[in-house]
């Protein structure tokens, strides 16, 4: 069971280039909103037609611009969980699920729909209409309907964007449990790294319509290959620097980090964990503190330079330095990354 995608599609001034391959298991398509994640899914499902390229699922060519193959969405057998679930509003829960069952007599379909209802703990809701269900129940019905259609791959388009955040965590758990029995490829589209990290094994980052290499989830989090990948991991500091002897020198800070960079300008990503406040060889001025929910964000500037580049650090609320104070800090070079 594998899915190979290599497509190109022009949408106005924006060109999508998606290229990746995944076997069974869940792969995340991670990227900011509007970067082309949903378009990629629509091309795989056959709802949109790419300009060029190939899509092969499980040995079957779904789309090939050179050989003029373009299977209909019906022939592709790709399950698609839409953002708003797209339940048919004029049908009951049971009828919605029956719609997904492709083969069998009416009686067989009813029987299988009943099985699916039990499996997804939807008993008692079978005669309800989608408008009468909660968001979580709607999602379960949509997933039950998809799995009833026996898809060869499942595409999840921002599965939690339609839900309140306080509901999310247990629905996320439920979704991954329900999907665990499925042995084909699953693509999980999201802009939330945490959500992807908890649910996916591998990840492909899409940036401005271009997909990067497929990597391990752990590799992305600890060694993001591009600046945008680093941004997705939650890193907030991207300082300009110059390559020099013995590493890179941060502009304005005069700090040299032993990172392999070579000559010329580059960008250094400094995640929160790389900075330890309180002690160390470097000096800074606290130019601003921002009280956040669980911590205090501390904005630092070089001690002698009130217009210098800003370094943003998180500190525990109880141990945050005061605004205007002079502080010492240390940088752990092994956690910093240098990008050209």
């Amino acid at each position: 069971m594998s899915l190979m995608v290599d497509i190109e599609k022009k949408l106005g001034s924006f060109t999508l280039r998606s290229k990746f391959e995944t076997d069974h298991g869940t792969m995340a398509l991670l990227g900011a909103s509007g970067c082309g994640k949903s378009v990629t899914l629509k091309c795989i499902a056959g709802i949109m037609t790419p300009d060029r390229g190939r899509i092969v699922l499980d040995g079957v060519t779904l789309f090939d611009s050179e050989k003029h193959i373009d299977l209909t969405p019906q022939q592709r057998q790709v399950g698609y969980l839409f953002q708003q679930y797209a339940l048919f509003p004029n049908m009951t829960v049971a009828q919605n699920i029956q719609c997904g069952i492709r083969t069998g007599s009416r009686a067989e379909k009813q029987q299988r729909a009943a099985q699916q209802l039990r499996r997804f703990r939807l008993e008692g809701l079978e005669k309800k209409y989608p408008a009468q269900l909660s968001g979580g129940q709607q999602q379960r019905v949509a997933l039950a309907r998809i799995l009833a259609s026996e898809p060869k791959a499942i595409l999840l388009d921002e599965p939690f964007s339609a839900l309140d955040s306080f509901l999310k965590w247990n629905l996320e758990l439920e979704l991954s449990d329900l999907l665990s029995g499925f042995d084909g490829p699953i693509l999980w589209v999201s802009h939330d790294l945490g959500e992807c990290y908890r649910n996916c094994r591998t990840v492909c980052v899409i940036e401005n319509g271009t997909s990067g290499a497929v990597t391990d989830m752990e590799a992305l989090v600890h060694h993001p290959a591009t600046q945008s990948a680093a941004r997705l991991t939650g890193c907030r500091n991207f300082l300009s620097a110059q390559g020099c002897q013995g590493g890179v020198r941060l502009d304005g800070w005069g700090i040299t980090l032993p990172l392999p960079a070579g000559d010329g300008p580059c960008t250094v990503a400094i995640p929160d964990g790389a900075v330890s406040l309180g002690a160390g060889p470097y000096r800074a001025q606290v130019f601003r503190t921002i009280c956040d929910l669980n911590e205090t964000a501390v904005l630092l500037r070089p001690a002698q330079d009130a217009a210098g580049p800003i370094l943003r650090v998180s500190a525990p609320k109880t141990a945050a330095p005061a605004q205007g104070a002079a502080v010492a800090f240390d940088l752990l070079p092994e956690q910093c990354l240098c990008y050209r």
Binding site: Q74, Q77, F82, Q84, A86, L87, P89, M91, I146, S149
Partner: peptide, 19 residues
């Protein structure tokens, strides 16, 4: 998206139109 959902579930375009 309701029509798209129907298509990905294997429903015919005629069925989607009338139902």
């Amino acid at each position: 998206t309701l029509a798209y959902a129907g298509q990905t579930l294997g429903l015919s375009n005629t069925y989607i139109f009338w139902h």
